[in-house]
Design a protein around this nucleic acid. Structure first.
Length: 296
DNA sequence: TAGCCGTGGTT
DNA sequence: TAACCAAGGCT
């Protein structure tokens, strides 16, 4: 654990002030938002932009306002209502979360980081986010936005390392305000700064409240110097094939025949591999009569 | 731990 | 236009 820099307030105070003025008015940040509403938003927001999450989150909250309400329905309904958010295994895990919360935690979303972390689909980031945003606890909430802001502001590089390092966690913890409610507000504030100003591609440095303290800016905004950060084209991949197959089931009222799946992907080898993968993941249920359905 | 897991908007 | 990117988690 790194000691808090004596001038941590140099970074925290301008960003807290900026957040007060520029925070987006998102429904899961409303005063009345329940821990469940916040948990659902966090799962949906994993690798998915806010604009696409908003309408689906609204529908989920109307239909399943509590963990018990979701737990009472088949997991396939969660997959169907997930729509085109992507990574549908998240829907399955969120349903499993609802079941675990209902059966093992009295229907209340846990407030403990360790208990949250043990739930399906909840990793280090989401556990910290829920504990912080829903319960106002003091945690280092280290997502892609925060990692990028800290990399630029304090390390002086354009992008953080590909995988999270212990040094990043120590740095994030060293900046946490001591008071838990303030730490919680700081967590959401840095994240928002990364989402709106200190963006990945074309940062809006003119609008940055800590520009004068930014190591990357001071260094002349040197370009990222390292291995390619991404890869993986989408067209023709198993992922695209899985998406097509699952879309058929989402749009069907009930079980579908095999031919209904076959028509959406021409390569039979890849199609069977993808279908087997969906079944192995629990996203598709092969029925005894040879048809296929969303899981019950 | 690196690779896998969807989808669509932006540059 | 293809590549990049988006509040990650799991194995």
């Amino acid at each position: 654990m790194t000691a808090a820099p004596p001038n941590a307030a140099r970074y925290t105070e301008p960003i807290l002030g900026w957040y007060d003025e520029h925070a987006r008015d998102l429904p899961w940040r409303a005063p009345g938002a329940t821990p469940w509403a916040i948990l659902v938003s966090e799962i949906m927001l994993q690798q998915t932009p806010v604009a696409r999450v908003l309408p689906v989150w609204q529908q989920w909250m109307e239909r399943w306002p509590t963990p018990a309400a979701l737990a009472a329905e088949p997991s396939g309904e969660a997959v169907r209502a997930w729509g085109r958010l992507g990574y549908p295994r998240r829907a399955l895990r969120l349903h499993a979360c609802a079941v675990a919360i209902t059966e093992q935690h009295g229907g209340q979303v846990p407030s403990s980081y360790d208990v949250l972390r043990a739930l399906p689909g909840i990793g280090a980031y989401t556990a910290a986010a829920v504990a912080s945003f829903a319960y106002r606890q003091r945690h280092a909430v280290l997502d892609t936005n925060v990692r990028r802001v800290l990399a630029r502001l304090l390390t002086g590089v354009e992008y953080p390392p590909k995988s999270q390092t212990a040094a990043e966690v120590a740095l994030a913890e060293s900046l946490l305000p001591h008071d838990p409610p303030t730490a919680a507000r700081w967590a959401v504030a840095v994240m928002e700064l990364g989402a709106l100003v200190c963006t990945a591609r074309t940062p809006r440095c003119v609008d940055c409240p800590v520009l004068s303290s930014c190591a990357w800016h001071r260094a002349g905004r040197p370009a990222y110097d390292g291995p390619p950060r991404r890869g993986q084209t989408y067209a023709g991949t198993d992922r695209q094939c899985r998406g097509r197959l699952l879309a058929v089931l989402r749009h069907a009222d009930g079980p579908v025949d095999k031919p209904a799946l076959d028509v959406v992907w021409s390569d039979p080898v890849q199609r069977e591999r993808a279908l087997d993968g969906l079944i192995a993941d629990g996203l598709v249920d092969p029925l005894d009569d040879g048809r296929y359905a969303l899981p019950s």
